[in-house]
């Protein structure tokens, strides 16, 4: 038995079971994995966020597919994605079968009242990691602040809050930023 196959299954099964709050909630877990294994780096997570925002499908699934394919080859993507979704199937079928008013249950509501802010805090921490790997470049002499990327970030963030531009698809921002990055040689 190849232990890597089962390790990937186990890790993504765990994410599927504990990432409460959908898409962005998987990012902290992915950052954990980047630290723990050499399957991918935090920088890969950042690239993956960009790819996920510009392709259909939820981030968690895209990331599972990416890691699986990278580590195990063509069928690895499907393998990791299936590992991620099995807990969903088990939990949802149990809820549908036995708990008719699950989302209205007093204790479920109570737990989510505090899970939501905790997840917000965890995501904020993960975003901090994204900032670190995006705004600093590793060079021979140590970490260098990527000033151009930082200026672009501030400019895009400001522009996104203009009403007319706020509904624009992320992929348009990515294409624009890629062009600017190439022209100004970021």
């Amino acid at each position: 038995m190849n232990s890597l196959i089962w390790k990937i299954f186990y890790e993504f099964f765990k994410i599927g079971l504990f990432a409460v709050g959908g898409g962005p909630a998987t990012i902290p877990y992915l950052m954990d994995l980047a630290e723990k294994y050499d399957w991918f780096t935090m920088e890969d997570v950042t690239n993956m966020i960009a790819i996920s925002e510009s392709t259909p499908g939820p981030l968690g699934l895209n990331m599972a597919t990416y890691v699986g394919t990278d580590a195990l080859g063509v069928l690895g993507g499907a393998w990791a994605s299936i590992a991620l979704t099995i807990p969903s199937i088990i939990v949802i079928v149990l809820v549908a079968k036995f708990l008719s008013n699950f989302s209205q249950n007093r204790w479920v509501k109570a737990a989510f009242y505090t899970i939501r802010p905790a997840v917000a805090g965890l995501i904020a921490a993960a975003v901090w990691n994204v900032f670190e790997v995006s705004l600093f470049v590793e060079e021979a002499g140590g970490r260098v602040f990527a000033l151009k990327t930082f200026i672009l970030f501030v400019a895009v963030f400001a522009l996104m809050h203009i009403k007319k531009l706020s509904k624009m698809h992320p992929v348009i921002w990515f294409i624009g930023a890629a062009v600017v990055g190439c022209i100004l040689k970021f």
């Binding site: 962005p24 950042t46 690239n47 966020i49 960009a50 925002e53 939501r116 802010p117 997840v119 917000a120 995501i123 904020a124 975003v127 994204v130 900032f131 995006s134 705004l135 470049v137 990527a146 151009k148 990327t149 930082f150 200026i151 672009l152 970030f153 895009v156 963030f157 996104m160 992320p170 921002w173 990515f174 624009g176 930023a177 890629a178 062009v179 600017v180 990055g181 190439c182 040689k185 970021f186």
Partner: peptide
């Protein structure tokens, strides 16, 4: 590489927006 350095700026902006809207909803 040049393109990715630009794209990373947008990722930061998108993620910051995500955190702000989550904070508004959950805090």
């Amino acid at each position: 590489q040049h393109a990715l350095m630009g794209i990373k700026g947008v990722v930061c902006a998108l993620m910051l927006n995500t955190v702000i809207s989550l904070a508004k909803k959950s805090l």
